[in-house]
């Protein structure tokens, strides 16, 4: 999926919400879109999902099927129970509804919710159901607006592991630096409708000036390593723990 000189302006607005955006999303890679509130993340995702048409420029995506989960999951719900909600997309695409529904319910550990009305779930549970409703249709490209918002750490990890495993082209927006660091292959930083930076998470998320300008929080593990002037950033909590022990910080 590619964008060429993409511009978008909302009706009655004087400024461009998206301006001069040229991006090349690699196949089967996970791309995280980050940036402050109002920087154009959601507008970009909605353009990519073809919910809105560009004011100028174009998006090339071939004949790929695109699945989208909105920032407010309730906006996408219309069925009487979670199972039907998740089953709608595969049914619509002529896939095995029962098999696909069962698979994603298990993948995301939400089988216990299948008879519930989607609208009465907690916001974290709704987030998981919304993601499941996209995964069940087995689209080629998956676009997720803030997929981990309202989720605790375990929920974030669950979603991250599932996204890694399904081996698809995935584009998500997030404010969670930890989620982007752990699960994105590439990061795009948006600022005032433009692309401010793009690159590998470990490079982008340690650039203090860039993060400050873009309103992004530095991941805790990078902050911790920087405060100790460590040459390399620990891979995970276990490695950080080992370093902390060697430094006698936990005695």
């Amino acid at each position: 999926m590619k964008t060429k000189d993409l511009y978008f302006k909302y009706p009655r607005s004087e400024r461009y919400a998206i301006e001069s955006v040229n991006l090349d999303f690699k196949d089967k890679k996970i791309t995280g879109v980050m940036g402050e509130n109002g920087s154009g993340k959601t507008t970009l995702l909605r353009l990519l999902a073809r919910f809105i048409e560009p004011t100028e420029g174009k998006i090339e995506f071939g004949d790929q099927e695109i699945g989208f989960s909105p920032e407010d999951p309730e906006l996408g719900f219309f069925e009487k129970d979670v199972e039907s909600e998740i089953g709608f997309y595969p049914k619509n695409r002529g896939l095995d509804q029962e098999k696909m529904t069962k698979k994603v319910l298990e993948q995301l550990d939400i089988s216990h919710l299948k008879e519930k009305l989607p609208f009465i779930l907690s916001s974290g549970q709704q987030r998981l159901v919304s993601l499941a409703s996209v995964l069940s249709g087995d689209p080629d490209v998956i676009i997720l607006d803030e997929p981990t918002h309202s989720l605790h750490k375990k929920g974030e990890e669950k979603i991250g592991e599932v996204l890694k495993k399904i081996n698809k082209t995935i584009i998500f927006s997030t404010h969670s630096s930890e989620f982007a660091l752990d699960y994105a292959d590439e990061i795009i930083v948006m600022h005032e409708g433009k692309v401010l930076a793009e690159g590998k998470p470990r490079k982008i998320l340690k650039d203090k000036d860039l993060l400050e300008k873009a309103g992004i929080r530095m991941p805790e593990i990078i902050r911790w390593a920087k405060e100790r002037s460590l040459q390399t950033i620990p891979k995970d909590m276990n490695e950080a723990l080992k370093i902390a022990k060697e430094r006698g910080e936990l005695d």
Binding site: H152, E220, R223, W224, A240, L241
Partner: peptide
């Protein structure tokens, strides 16, 4: 229970082996 706490506290919890 999967609640995000400051990294340093997460390390301590990890050390105590009860946490994660």
């Amino acid at each position: 229970h999967g609640i995000k706490v400051p990294f340093e506290m997460g390390l301590k919890a990890h050390l105590e082996g009860e946490g994660i």
